[in-house]
């Protein structure tokens, strides 16, 4: 099938139910998107599909035929993405970093849909797990972009 990722079209030959996560990581070799649980519980695998937040571990690749997938690798090609990354650096958000691709993508999706989310909107959208508990810093970074 044909897959659109980060503005490029790829031909891939996989079982239709293969999770998008593993197509991204293994067929396309882009490892920024992480595997944490495979069960839609953690958010480490967060990408955007047609601009909306999605968890690639529970997205059968067949279901994104014709859609535009954006991964962390393309985050800095987007103006909102650049702002989010800058805020992440300003706030020194990551610790181990493993969840952070997903956190950044969740933040970008939120801020693209709603450029100035309020406190509770941030809390409702930023639901990915972080075992290093960088939650205070994540919240601060999103707030920083929201206010700017």
């Amino acid at each position: 099938m044909e897959l659109r990722i980060n503005g490029m079209t790829h031909q891939i030959d996989v079982e239709p139910e293969t999770p998008l996560l593993w197509v991204i990581r293994e067929e396309l070799g882009m490892t920024g998107t992480k595997y944490g649980c495979g069960l839609a519980q953690c958010g480490a695998c967060t990408v955007m599909i047609d601009g909306r937040v999605a968890r690639s571990c529970v997205t059968p690749v067949e279901s994104v035929a014709g859609a535009e997938v954006t991964t962390i690798e393309a985050v800095e090609t987007d103006p909102v993405g650049r702002k989010v990354v800058a805020a992440w650096i300003d706030n020194q958000v990551p610790q181990c970093g493993y969840c952070q691709s997903g956190q950044v993508m969740a933040a970008v999706a939120l801020l693209k849909e709603n450029p100035s989310p309020g406190e509770s909107e941030i809390t409702e959208a930023m639901v990915n797990l972080c075992r290093c508990a960088t939650y205070n810093a994540i919240h601060a970074a999103v707030r920083q972009v929201a206010k700017a």
């Binding site: 690798e73 990354v85 650096i89």
Partner: peptide, 17 residues
């Protein structure tokens, strides 16, 4: 500032996996 923050904010940091 931490040296690994930029890579970890852009998916470039690599782990065993």
């Amino acid at each position: 500032p931490r040296l690994d923050v930029a890579d970890k904010s852009t998916g470039r940091a690599t782990y065993s996996i």
